[in-house]
Amino acid sequence: MDRIIPNLKLLLILVSLSILILVLDLFQILRFPKTLLSYLINPISFGLYQTNQKFIRQFHFIFQARFAAQENKALKEQIGQLLSENANLRKSLTEAQTLVSQDKHLDPATYNLIPARPIGIGRYLKIDKGLSEGLALGQAVVFNDNYLGKIVQVSEKSAHVQFLSDPDSKVAAFSQGLEGKGRGVLIGQFGTDILMDKILHEEKVNVGDLVYSEGTEGFLPRGLILGRVSQVLKQETEVFKQAKVTPNFDISDMELVFVIVE
């Protein structure tokens, strides 16, 4: 037996001793020595625990720093997404406001308007609507009740709008001020200015007068605002007097323009 379980005698003694201690402890007889021992053990355990906590705190900083870097990166990405979302929302809001504003100026019951986004600007303004949306050559492009230009080139999904300032643009117009009316023709000047020509000398044209469309072209309704007189060019030797006209809107500020389809 001693070969199978070495030190059997000692084992039995220690097992017996353990059982005795267990019984004594179960009957609470060893309470006093245990209490005494706890005075020794508890401070050691506390010290060990505190040391461990301090150690963990030191290392926690390193883990925290790594985690903070990851969190920072994630937050930056989130901010980027939010900014992008915000920009889209602002754009949508501006478009919605523009649509509402347009409805106030040109009655949708009278005019069939198609909203279009400017997608490029050169000599002409490029918009994102074309033949597939019902656009055609010669249609007027407006913003609120201001005339911007007419469609001169159109493809399936885009179109080019000729401004009033384009040298090829000619529109019959009249100015309306407190002193009276003045009739003439708006002619584009080098793509930068608009000149109102063919104004009779006796007609009253003053700086600040609004210039409206006559509507004789067919594609253009009468009464759309074309601009404001910024300078009157009067020469007695000439048959007609002229006036420089400035558009009321800067096209680069517009999010949305409208094409009058019908």
Partner: peptide, 23 residues
């Protein structure tokens, strides 16, 4: 004592397991 269990119980288990391991 450290694990707040009844004194002697872990001694009994340890002794048995050590004896088995030695065997």
């Amino acid at each position: 004592n450290l694990n707040l269990t009844a004194l002697g119980i872990q001694s009994l288990i340890y002794l048995t397991l050590v004896a088995v391991s030695e065997g």
